[in-house]
Nucleic acid binder design. Sequence first.
DNA 1: TGAATAGTGTCTATAAGACAATATCCC
DNA 2: GGGATATTGTCTTATAGACACTATTCA
Lengths: 242, 242
Amino acid sequence: MKVARRDPSAFAKRFLPELTVDVVLLSVGDDGRLCTLLSRRNEAPYKGAWALPGVFVGRTETLESAAARALRDKAGIANVFLEQLFTFGDLQRDPRGRVLSVAYYALVPKARFFAATAEIADAAIALLTIPSGDERSGAIHADSAEGRRMKLAFDHDRIIGMAVQRIRGKLNYAPIGFELLPDRFTLLDIQHIHEAVLGRTLNKDSFRRKMLASNLIEDTKQRQIGSAFRPATLYRFKKQEN
Amino acid sequence: MKVARRDPSAFAKRFLPELTVDVVLLSVGDDGRLCTLLSRRNEAPYKGAWALPGVFVGRTETLESAAARALRDKAGIANVFLEQLFTFGDLQRDPRGRVLSVAYYALVPKARFFAATAEIADAAIALLTIPSGDERSGAIHADSAEGRRMKLAFDHDRIIGMAVQRIRGKLNYAPIGFELLPDRFTLLDIQHIHEAVLGRTLNKDSFRRKMLASNLIEDTKQRQIGSAFRPATLYRFKKQEN
DNA sequence: TGAATAGTGTCTATAAGACAATATCCC
DNA sequence: GGGATATTGTCTTATAGACACTATTCA
């Protein structure tokens, strides 16, 4: 089925594509909206448009290492939840030639997101508007903090859209929302994360019940401080017993 | 961020991996077990071991076209549900060198599966044993029709395992089970498909209720024939209104 | 008619949504 | 104490599982 790599005749005919990794770094801002980090391109193609942080994959690194390197070099962020999303290989996705992109998505609490991304030149935070699951119409929109629509390079709108669809799906069966929260959080904090990801409001009572019954979080016996009213209990994500 | 393709200095340094597509063609046999098609390798590495149908990706075909070509050429099957699964890029996954594999999974009704695969030389049907979701222990096993354990080449055990995990997850929110059924089927047929995929038995009453309430299937007003008892109503998958 | 499975009706347990009542904090 | 939100308790409704009962076919 496969031919030994050093067979020169087969090797000559073989197509070797260029390979990049692009990362959708997601967080949830104070306004309860999903946001991601984009870099402005200052060369063609798509000069002036906004692109996801990405790198070419090196010879001696895995796909995941390359994604982590993209995050570190282009977003100043390390040690976050990082998972493969999808591989984009359309023939015309890059006008320069055939370039495949293995897309990853990463999740990070807002404090780390805003602290790290504030340092990056030519980068900006994009507030995302994504049609909710039941709506067929409408594309992804990325807006700057000032409210300007950001034009996306390549097929990065599709990549971002798929990242959001993916975490929406995973939210229901994987403890993924906690990756977007700091160590200690209130029940309402988790609910806001879920609402931001799902793009719709949730019933508070049943959300609380389900979360408390999930065995995923534990009471820290601490209370929120600085609130002008009754402070909420702080919970933390429970390390899973193996 | 990215450099123009024709820039010779950047191009020279760039790593161009070899790229294959492998397909997990899944069906459910008469015994209610998940099964897939494997080919025996007759060259090193993994000579004599069993591998998924796969091809190298050509210069002018998309990843999905390559996957469809692998299915057509190596399994004699076309026009089936086909979806990207994951991209495997570990450094050591192929002892000959760095070869990436974009894995796909395909679903086909058992009649087509067995009719097509009977014609393929050096191929065999593997009956799969996959640990259910809550069990952490245990790896994927592939057994021949005669009950012999089949040794899998490369990381194809991981690929198959991930394919099964994926369809298990999708079964709950996507009308994916119908891809494993013929045009007309009984409610019990669908249940058997779900049980095979999930690897556990389901409650008949609530499965029927949920399926009938789902608006995914419609009564054909036909009955099953040839049964030695009361024949079940035949349903068909309802084409979704757009 | 009997065997065997299809399909219906109903009861119960559990989970979700609604909402009132009470608790706790800061000012 | 007043304002505001957290937290608890309870009622109602929807859904899942259990199970008994009826229906239909072939031998």
